[in-house]
Design a protein around this nucleic acid. Structure first.
Length: 224
DNA sequence: GACCAGGCACATC
DNA sequence: GATGTGCATGGT
């Protein structure tokens, strides 16, 4: 086991000891999770929840309903999530990609290999690497590691990665250092987000953080 | 009132 | 290939 593998597992155990297993992405159905992944782009989750609630209230949480809904109506429903015009287009692009090949059967769409899903999702305008990986890990429940702003911040703060690292290098590091287990990847990412939100702020020291005992640079900047 | 929040595509150099 | 910018609401 490499030094990094060992360190990452020790950090994971410290986080689980504090927060418990998180079963992290809120959302009951694959569609809710996939839609949430697009709505969550650079947006506070609270605002995403309002938008999702609007979609449920409008009784339109199905591929077909979303496919048939006029853009203006969809935009109004997801308005609380911000960027509502671009996100309407992105949602429509995603829904169309599913509908055109699998109709209303999102589960069928998702029940394919990780590489196939990555290829098809990344081909959708508006779905980038994080959104695609979030859908694959949390909606399709397949083994791929999701890298987000908190992943960068926490790993950078703890000197696991450096300023030269990018999405692919961090993803590769995590996937090669951890056991290939979708449940572990799911929970690990959830733990990193929880740590990031609660303790790993831009400037403040991380007092009380369960990772406090691990080597870290309290003054390290956040972004890659 | 500034700053931040679970990105992405596109323009420009 | 790297860097900059628009997109927008709502909480702290």
């Amino acid at each position: 086991m490499s030094r990094t593998s060992q360190l990452l597992m020790e950090m994971y155990e410290a986080m689980v000891a504090r927060f418990g297993r998180l079963d992290w992405w809120p959302g009951d159905s694959p569609l809710e999770i996939a839609v949430g992944a697009i709505l969550a782009q650079n947006t506070n989750w609270r605002n995403v929840e309002k938008a999702l609630a609007n979609l449920f209230d409008a009784d339109c949480m199905s591929i077909t309903a979303l496919y048939e809904m006029p853009q203006e109506q969809l935009a109004e429903l997801i308005r609380p999530a911000g960027y509502y015009n671009v996100k309407t287009k992105r949602l429509k692009n995603f829904i169309a990609a599913v509908y055109d090949s699998f109709g209303d059967d999102l589960e069928g769409f998702l029940d394919r290999s990780v590489s196939t899903l990555q290829e098809e999702l990344l081909a959708v305008n508006g779905i980038g690497r994080e959104t695609a990986d979030s859908m694959i890990l949390y909606a399709a429940k397949k083994t791929t590691f999701v890298v987000d702003t908190y992943t960068f911040r926490v790993l950078y703060r703890h000197l696991i990665i450096g300023p030269e690292d990018d999405y692919e290098s961090v993803k590769e590091l995590m996937e090669s250092s951890l056991p290939a287990d979708a449940d572990l990847f799911n929970d690990y990412h959830g733990q990193l987000v929880t740590i990031g939100k609660k303790y790993c702020k831009k400037t403040a020291k991380c007092t009380g953080c369960p990772l406090e005992s691990f080597e870290h640079d309290p003054l390290a900047g956040i972004e890659q």
